[in-house]
Simulated assay, not measured.
Amino acid sequence: MRKKIASLGILAVLLFAVPQTGLSQSPKESYIIGNGDILEIVTWKEEDFSREEIIVRLDGMISFPLLDDVMAAGKTPTQLKLDIQDGLKAYVSEPHVTVTIRSAASKRFYILGEVVNTGEYPLTKNLTVLQAFALAGGFTEWASKKEIILFRRDQGKETVIRIDYKDIVKGKDFSQNVEIRADDTIVVP
């Protein structure tokens, strides 16, 4: 009996000690605002300079009172806050602005092929490919789980990442359980 308990303990240590190399180990980057995101901008004690829902247009701009068009896409909420505060200084003595992402509509990924629910999915938190398959309802009976392809555009060039689902779930290669990024497309043949 003691041998069984010791064996289970060792197995548990091995399972939880396996490094998750497919997951990002670096500190998380700040959110980058994109086209289609919905922002809330509040200027403290200035209701005329506060908006509950501002949509980032396709050109990356937002419209804001007295400042007209302000570039939002490609900036962090903190950078946009500072830009708006600088612009409002001509109208408000000490503007204090807060920028909040109400809906991260610009961050999406896509799953196509032999999954139950193909389509576009919002990237509202950090997800791995295994979690993306779960969101898509799993595989159809015809899915080729050893030949999955993830297409990623990174710094202007297309990258192809091959994923063998069976190797991941068997514990052979956790590095294939990569973190999903905005605009990734997963194809399950």
Rank of each mutant, 00 (worst) to 15 (best):
I41V: 15
A17W: 14
S26I: 04
Y91I: 00
Y121W: 07
S103C: 03
S24N: 14
L8R: 09
D69G: 08
L14I: 08
A105T: 00
P65S: 08
L123N: 02
V92R: 04
I41T: 10
D86K: 15
A72N: 07
G60Q: 13
I10S: 01
I38G: 04
I32N: 00
I111C: 01
S7V: 15
S106R: 00
G34Y: 08
S24E: 12
V116P: 05
G74S: 12
L127A: 06
Q79H: 13
K75E: 03
Q131W: 09
L14Y: 12
I111Y: 04
E120V: 13
L127T: 08
N35A: 14
L123M: 01
V56A: 03
D68E: 15
Y121T: 08
N117S: 13
V129E: 11
E46Y: 03
N35E: 15
L23Q: 12
K75D: 01
P122F: 02
E46F: 03
D37P: 08
Y121F: 13
I38R: 10
A17R: 10
V92Y: 03
F109N: 06
T76P: 01
L123K: 01
N35C: 11
M1N: 05
K28R: 15
D68N: 15
Q79N: 08
Q79I: 06
K45A: 12
D59F: 12
L88P: 11
F16I: 15
P95T: 10
S24V: 07
V116C: 02
R2W: 02
V92D: 06
R102P: 04
I62S: 01
Y91C: 02
G87N: 03
L58G: 13
T128W: 09
D48T: 11
Q79E: 15
I32Y: 09
G113D: 09
T98P: 05
P27I: 06
S103F: 08
L80I: 04
L15S: 14
L112M: 14
A6D: 11
I38W: 00
Y110K: 07
E29M: 10
